[in-house]
Amino acid sequence: MNARDNILGRLRATAAVAPPLPGVGSWYASHHRNEDLSQRIARLRSALESSHTEVHDTTPVDWPEFLLDIAAKKGLRNLLIGEGTPHGVTLEARHPENLQLIRYDHPIDSWRDRLFDEIDASLTLARSAIAETGSLILWPSIAEPRLMSLVPHVHFVLLDVSNIHADLHSAMRAENWKESIPTNALLISGPSKTADIQQTLAYGAHGPRELIVLLCHRG
C-alpha cells in the first residue's frame, strides 16, 4: 500500500453525507447590482484608486500619448512590450525618443538577470476587469508572458472599458473560464504591497511599485 491508497482508504472508510450543492449562482444573482457600463467604470476606478493605482481615461487613439507622457515624467528609461501585440506595434511605430522599447521575444532563461536588473517598466493588456474589487484580469500568453506584470518596477495596463464585469463570479461565468483556463490566470488589484512591518502599509514589496491603468474608451 502506498501513501495515496492509505489516505484515500482512510477517507473512504468514513461515510460522509454531502449537503446539497452550494447555491453559488443564486447567491450572486440575488446580490447582483444592476449597473450600466458607466457605473461599473466608476466603481472600478474608485476601487483601483483606493488601492493606490493610477488611473487615466484614454481612447484607442491617444493612449500612447498618455503613456509616453507619464513615462517621461517618471523618468523611465525603457519599457518592456509583448511580441507582435497590436498595442506594442502601435507604440513601436511612434519611435519614441526617450523611451527604449524592449520586446519580450525570447525565453526568460537567457536574459533573466537583465529583466531583473535593467527593465524599468512594462506594458500589458488586461483582458477584462472586475468593478467590485478593482481587479484587472490578465491571462499571460506567449506574446505577453507572466513575468511582464511582475518584475518591472512600473506596470502599465491597457484596459478596454467595455470588458468590465461586476464581480469575479460573473467574470468566470461570462468568459467561461471552466473550459478555457490558461497556464496562468491572474487578478491584479493594485501595486505590490505589504504590511508585515508593524502593520505599516508599504508599496513595492516584490512586484511593481506602481500600477498605472489606461482605461481605453471606444467612441
Binding site: S135, I142, P145, I181, T183, I188, G190, P191
Partner: peptide
C-alpha cells in the same frame, strides 16, 4: 484575514510552461 476587499494578487496555476511560452 486582513480586512481587505481583495488581495493584490490572485494567482491561478493550471499547467507548467507550455511549448512556446517564454517563462514559468
Amino acid at each position: 484575514a486582513t480586512g481587505q476587499s481583495i488581495t493584490t494578487y490572485f494567482n491561478m496555476i493550471s499547467r507548467p510552461r507550455q511549448p512556446g511560452e517564454k517563462d514559468g
